[in-house]
Design a protein around this nucleic acid. Sequence first.
DNA 1: GTTAAACAGGACTATTTTAACCCTATTATC
DNA 2: GATAATAGGGTTAAAATAGTCCTGTTTAAC
Lengths: 137, 137
Amino acid sequence: MLQVSRKFEYGLHAVTYLATKGLGRVVTVKEMADEMGFSQEFLSKAMQSLKRAGIAASVQGVKGGYTLGKSTDNITVADIALAIEGKPHLVRCGVKADRCEIFSSCHHRGYMNTLQHKIQVLLAATTVHSLLKEIVG
Amino acid sequence: MLQVSRKFEYGLHAVTYLATKGLGRVVTVKEMADEMGFSQEFLSKAMQSLKRAGIAASVQGVKGGYTLGKSTDNITVADIALAIEGKPHLVRCGVKADRCEIFSSCHHRGYMNTLQHKIQVLLAATTVHSLLKEIVG
DNA sequence: GTTAAACAGGACTATTTTAACCCTATTATC
DNA sequence: GATAATAGGGTTAAAATAGTCCTGTTTAAC
Ligand code: SF4
Ligand code: SF4
């Protein structure tokens, strides 16, 4: 269906939320989940992925939470997608060749791969900084 | 995971197969399934979708089968995707607003929709005619 | 006109992926 | 030491995808 996952959308919302709060402010998952209206546990997983990718930074313990790990013009939508969904694979064979039973006789793999690359370029073209301007404007 | 469905790939292969056989030649689902190595029943569903969209034309009865319904430069990859997967919805709310619990407070919907449009433009930029040239070249 | 080979399509089942939840650490403030 | 937070493994639930089955309908060939 070529649809982004909920986890990705949660992550994207979280990043823009953190961005509007500024780099200094430490925000808890609870606050974000309450504010934006989705599951705390699930958002928590998304934040952990973002943290591992360096997009978010975490502070543990009481008074802990998350902040952005980079400046907003240094995070692209592609980065967020990569952090949360892992390497993109528009076609099954990208995960592993034997995921497709007709791998050896397939002629349109090259096209699909360039298509995937073009989609990646689209995602990489939007930084969180530019996204925020779109949102406000 | 932003991955195309198997049904779409089956359909795309079928269309290029029909295209190489020329508009005159009527090809059965059995032949295509055997030739390309996938489930006859499942490919049959894809062909039915392609037929309903006018991309393929069918001949019923003994000696029946499928041919292309249009010229190869009149079919784009986007057309095939539309025929097989229906209207694309990069985000849940595209299907129906109430599919997303935070619809009313969502700020990045506009961006996601333009993103989807750009992906559609990518798909629409490739005709079966140009795809065949890529494959051969 | 009977048979057989093909498309048409509804309904069902199985598999896989995604989403959500639970529970136990660990960390650090108070 | 109590508490409020992140970290993360493991399990379950729900949804989407893939695949099958079965019953019609059409039509060429005999
Ligand atoms: S059909 Fe081709 S492009 Fe698609 S998964 Fe198989 S090998 Fe890859
Ligand atoms: S988060 Fe926004 S864009 Fe995504 S489904 Fe919900 S309303 Fe649509």
